[in-house]
């Protein structure tokens, strides 16, 4: 029996094939995500038993449960999941187009650039609505990511050179962010600092909503272009020989990755290492074909941030450790492991 199932549509000129491993893995991950969400919604200073959480979500809980769950905790959990999903998909795309297993939104400086854009808006335009952060983050992410890619290019893209240049660009963006924060004495600096660490603390529906259109465009576009990722992941000449418009596809996919990564940064700050780890875990689960890898990586990423937030809230309660600290504490050793594995 083949590993693949071909799916063809009689009416439309569309067909694609799916790795048989993908649907069960996605279902299992979805189940875990739901269970974790229920657990996360019930945990906090005001604990709610899981049964009540489910009843409240379905619209049948008491009034105070309704307020705690649906107004306070649900948007936070959704933001955590979606941010992880966006970062992980951006990471998977970047790893494929740079053919670099170490690429990710933070390693390429994209997150730091997006953070700079968002902090600049926070500090210089204190009255701007939350939704203004996303375009600013997008501009910053595009500039930093583009600069890294351009400077890392030298007659071809070299994986480690790209990482080193990305480290430099991230440091420069971080320095500019510090400068921006030093220009003001306002209270928002403390807020911006916590936000920069990567945190879903106090996220409400007004933070979730501005993220949705960007993800609504970015995620389907990424899934539609997944097969181009498979080709680009091969050798450059081979991809061209297979009829891929390499530069065009790479540019489009880069733009999609920046959109997803920046939307995530605008919503929750720079959550380190999620975009790096999730694609690798997903590759272990469903193999390297991007049609299945992208959604799986997205689910894994969402689960990671959800879990990191839950751990951060319960580890040292009542102190909240930002989710970004948790992901970095787990992710940096994983990065080292990737770096030194069989090389």
């Amino acid at each position: 029996m083949s590993r693949w199932t071909a799916i063809r549509c009689r009416r439309l000129p569309v067909s694609f094939r799916l790795d048989r491993r993908v649907p069960p893995v996605l279902l299992a991950l979805g189940g875990i995500a739901l269970a974790l969400t229920v657990l996360s919604l019930g945990t906090g200073q005001y604990p709610v038993p899981p049964g009540e959480v489910v009843r409240t979500l379905l619209g049948g809980g008491s009034r105070e449960y309704d307020f705690v769950i649906r107004t306070l905790r649900l948007p936070r959990a959704l933001v955590a999941f979606l941010v992880g999903l966006a970062l992980a998909m951006a990471g998977a795309i970047l790893q494929a187009i740079t053919r670099n297993p170490l690429a990710s939104p933070d390693v390429t400086g994209l997150s730091a650039g997006a953070g700079l854009g968002a902090v600049a808006v926070m500090v210089f335009l204190p009255d701007a609505p939350w939704s203004a952060l996303t375009p600013a983050a997008l501009a910053g992410g595009l500039a930093a990511g583009g600069l890294t890619y351009w400077l890392g290019w030298k007659g071809g893209s070299h994986p480690l050179r790209l990482v080193l240049v990305g480290i430099g660009i991230a440091a420069a963006a971080q320095a500019l962010t510090n400068t921006v924060m030093a220009t003001t004495q306002s209270l928002r600096v403390g807020e911006a600092l916590v936000w920069l660490t990567g945190s879903v603390y106090g996220r409400s529906w007004q933070h979730l909503r501005p993220m949705l259109p960007w993800l609504g465009v970015g995620v389907p576009a990424a899934l539609l272009m997944a097969r181009h990722l498979d080709v680009l992941h091969l050798d450059e000449d081979l991809a061209r020989g297979l009829g891929s418009r390499v530069e065009w596809h790479r540019g489009m996919l880069f733009l999609i990755a920046v959109t997803l990564g920046s939307a995530a940064v605008a919503a929750a700050g720079t959550l380190g290492f999620v975009g790096l780890m999730a694609p690798h875990i997903a590759r272990r689960l469903v193999g390297p074909a991007h049609g299945g890898l992208l959604p799986t990586a997205g689910m894994v990423g969402g689960l990671m941030v959800l879990a990191a937030d839950l751990i951060g809230r319960t580890l040292l309660a009542p102190i909240e450790v930002p989710a970004g600290v948790v992901t970095a504490a787990v992710g940096a050793p994983y990065f080292l492991y990737l770096l030194f594995r069989n090389r």
Partner: peptide, 29 residues
């Protein structure tokens, strides 16, 4: 190269832990 990358990853890890300490204590921040 490996020394540099290991150092960068180590710096990222330690900086995250430092931020954790800072957030845990507003006064220190």
């Amino acid at each position: 190269l490996r020394l540099t990358l290991a150092g960068a990853a180590m710096a990222g890890f330690l900086t995250a832990l430092t931020q954790g300490v800072l957030v845990a204590s507003e006064r220190t921040l």
